[in-house]
Design a protein around this nucleic acid. Structure first.
Lengths: 141, 141
DNA sequence: TTAGATGCAAATAGTTTGCATTTGT
DNA sequence: ACAAATGCAAACTATTTGCATCTAA
């Protein structure tokens, strides 16, 4: 059905979940996105690929992926439909322009020192993070 | 009607918005919360204080406050109803335990150096941020 | 005085649920 | 074989909208 399994699909199976058509299709849509995608967009693209997949399964899959920290719902420029962000290695960070709503990705969030300090001070074990900056992008300054 | 105006109320008026009963009541509820509150909780507490305030006005007020960066909707342990976090000085940070859903606040997010570096490198002007860590709290480790 | 904000109730839309059926392992 | 997952459609519920009325400045 699917020729190649992505690392996330393997992770899914190793966590004891079945690799169903619905799940692999949602995963494909997420992986082909730019890392930010709304539930409405996921529903639409999944329907384009395979219209026999039910909406409920898409939502169930998004919930499953969220519980596995593959994605994370956020409220980027949409107060109605959640935007899901892909969380490679359990983290994600970006800048949202509060004027034009553009989302700017960047590397090197520089949080490893902070993570280590918090783990030591608060006796917690941190596995990921979401860092969202707000401000004006270069075009809106 | 209200004897004292909080700094946020003054900020609201200075931004050109009327200080109505609905808005001041929502603000009061938010300020008396622990900094994390769902829309359902806001609706309920507002109704307790003044049942004549309409639900629609509460939602309109939450939208207004979000646009003013007084609060920010997030998806803490609730995939249905958004949780709003108060954003003092335009930022907020916390740890969410992925096991028990406890939210741990902490000071000193240590992002000022990263903020300055991003502003210089990407030619943006950053005004706030939301930083959310995921992991296990001391009791769940 | 009057633009802005409100409350109400109806409309909308995104998401969830129950269940018979199908499917991956 | 069989527990897990699915698709369907109905049910749900949070949120939004239109509009006449009210009110803060």
């Amino acid at each position: 059905m699917f020729t190649e399994l992505s690392p996330r699909a393997i992770r899914l199976r190793e966590a004891g979940h079945k690799l169903t058509n619905a799940r692999l299709t949602v995963l494909k849509v997420l992986e082909e996105s730019d890392g930010h995608i709304t539930s409405a967009e996921v529903l639409e693209k999944v329907a384009q690929i395979d219209s026999s997949i039910g909406r409920a399964s898409v939502f169930r899959t998004l919930d499953l992926f969220t519980s596995l920290s593959i994605i994370r719902p956020t409220y980027i420029n949409s107060s109605v439909t959640p935007t899901y962000v892909m969380m490679p290695d359990g983290h994600h960070h970006h800048i949202v322009c509060t004027n034009c709503n553009r989302v700017i990705e960047f590397e090197n969030c520089g949080l490893s020192a902070i993570t280590a300090e918090l783990e030591a001070r608060l006796h917690v074990k941190l596995t990921g993070h979401l860092l969202e900056f707000y401000g004006l992008c270069d075009k809106c300054i």
